[in-house]
C-alpha cells in the first residue's frame, strides 16, 4: 500500500508540473490577446484557467498521497511552512513555497471580480516565481528528478517557458501592438 501511495505521489507531482507548464504558456498567450489557430480568445482564457485548476487538483493529490505515505515522512506543518522537513528540507521547502504561491494565485484568480484587477494582477505576477520554484523542487526533491527522461523534459519546458517570457517582453507581443504604435504616443 505504501509503495503505491509513494508511486502515485510522484506521478501526480509530475502531472501537476506538466499542467502548470501548459497553464503558464496559455496565460502568456492569453495576455497577448491573440488567438491560437482556430481557438478564439475566450477559449484560451478558459483553457488557461481550467488547466491551472486541474494542475492544482493534481498538486493536492501529490501532497495528499505523500502525507499518507510513511516513506516521505511528510507532516501537515511541512505542507504549509517551508524548510522544516525531514527529507531534503531545502528542496522539499521549495515545493512548499510553490504550493503556498499556487494557493494565493488560485484563490485570487477565482475571486478576481471581488478583489479588483489591481490585487488580482499583483498576486498573479507570482506565477513567474512559482513555476521555476516548482521545477527546482521536482528536480532536487524527486526520486526521478535527476533521471534522464525527466531532465530532457525539464530542459524542453524551460526552453518553452523561457521563450514565451522573452516573447512577452518583446515590443510586438500584443496583438494590437502594430496598430497602436505611433497612434497613442
Amino acid at each position: 500500500m505504501d509503495e503505491a501511495l509513494w508511486a502515485f505521489g510522484r506521478v501526480s507531482g509530475f502531472v501537476s508540473l506538466a499542467l502548470f507548464t501548459f497553464s503558464v504558456l496559455l496565460g502568456i498567450l492569453n495576455r497577448s490577446g491573440r488567438r491560437l489557430l482556430v481557438l478564439p480568445r475566450f477559449s484560451i482564457s478558459l483553457l488557461h484557467r481550467n488547466i491551472a485548476l486541474l494542475a492544482t487538483v493534481f498538486l493536492g493529490l501529490h501532497v495528499g498521497s505523500l502525507l499518507l505515505d510513511s516513506y516521505a515522512k511528510l507532516n501537515v506543518i511541512d505542507v504549509l511552512v517551508p524548510f522544516l522537513g525531514a527529507y531534503r528540507p531545502f528542496w522539499q521547502g521549495l515545493g512548499t513555497v510553490a504550493l503556498d504561491l499556487v494557493a494565493a494565485v488560485v484563490v485570487t484568480g477565482l475571486l478576481r471580480h471581488r478583489l479588483g484587477q489591481r490585487t488580482f494582477k499583483a498576486i498573479h505576477w507570482l506565477t513567474y516565481a512559482m513555476w521555476p520554484i516548482a521545477l527546482a523542487h521536482a528536480i532536487g526533491n524527486g526520486t526521478d528528478g535527476t533521471g534522464k527522461w525527466f531532465l530532457v523534459l525539464a530542459v524542453a519546458s524551460v526552453a518553452a517557458v523561457g521563450g514565451a517570457v522573452i516573447w512577452r517582453l518583446s515590443a510586438t507581443f500584443l496583438e494590437t501592438a502594430k496598430a497602436r504604435e505611433g497612434g497613442l504616443r
Binding site: G33, P40, R41, F42, S45, Q117, E175, T176, A179, R180, G183
Partner: peptide, 23 residues
C-alpha cells in the same frame, strides 16, 4: 478607463459588437 481592446467580448457578442482598428 479599463478596456484594453483585447477582443473577448467582441468574439462572444459578434451580433452586438464589432472591433475597431485598434482592437
Amino acid at each position: 478607463t479599463k478596456c484594453d481592446g483585447r477582443g473577448l467580448c467582441t468574439e462572444l457578442l459578434p451580433g452586438l459588437l464589432g472591433r475597431d482598428d485598434w482592437g
